[in-house]
Amino acid sequence: MSGKTIVMTSGKGGVGKTTATANVGTALALRSNRVAVIDTDIGLRNLDVVMGLENRIVYDLVDIVEGRCRLEQALIRDKHAGDLYLIAAAQTRDKDCITTQQLVGLCKRLEDDFDYVIVDCPAGIEQGFRNAIAAASEALVVTTPEVSAIRDADRVIGLLQAADIHQIRLIINRINPELVRRGDMMDASDVLEMLAVDAIGLVPSDDRVITSTNNGTPVVYDGQSASGREFVRIAARIDGEHLPLIDPLDEAPTSIMEKVRNIMGINRRASAHV
């Protein structure tokens, strides 16, 4: 098997990289792929809690590269999603404790055994970022429709291109249809025009992400969640399916009756897209 390493990055922190990694990884595994997700945010790990695997960590990324365990010992299997595995970041070290070559070597080994290796990149553009992008042939840049996130995404896209990663696609996260309709938020077309890269997903703002994160269950398991459904579609697009992009404005309820139906869980449009 020769898998593909994809880095999930953003530049700015707090835009949803880790949530996107957990959900895209889970959705890819639910499509019968073998998937390894790696948290490279050494010192500030969180992918384990978002995936609900925090109590099962024995060995971490640094243990592997420093030879304290075998690769197989640090792979934590998510029992709910078939062949989904997590390599957690070390929490008590810093980002300089692994080298670019070590992470590249690890990803190459994983590519022999997995269809997808997804690297959750730390915020910023320092050593942690340089390590995380080094092994990737593709990048998914996560941004939100906010000034600071878009500006940082543009900077990161420039750095990815300088690092010879030319397969760069954008996940625009937390699009709030009501704010866009009122003229208070940029829409997907604004962001895409400024960043000049293709989008792979337009994820609506969704309270269910918060509850799913609190429960340690990725939101892709929640069929009623609009963001969960979009993460499922993103995974399908990564997997080669040609699904059209769905603007959250087209999916969001516009009438009071539709909002009531959503609250009661009778979402006609939602079920049509699953």
């Binding site: 000034v147 938020m185 400024m194």
Partner: peptide, 22 residues
């Protein structure tokens, strides 16, 4: 302009400036 237009203009300006600085 409305907040969307203001945001658009500001981020475009910032990006343009960043690209030149880099």
């Amino acid at each position: 302009g409305n907040p969307r237009q203001v945001a658009r203009e500001r981020v475009q300006t910032a990006i343009r400036r960043d690209r030149v600085e880099v």
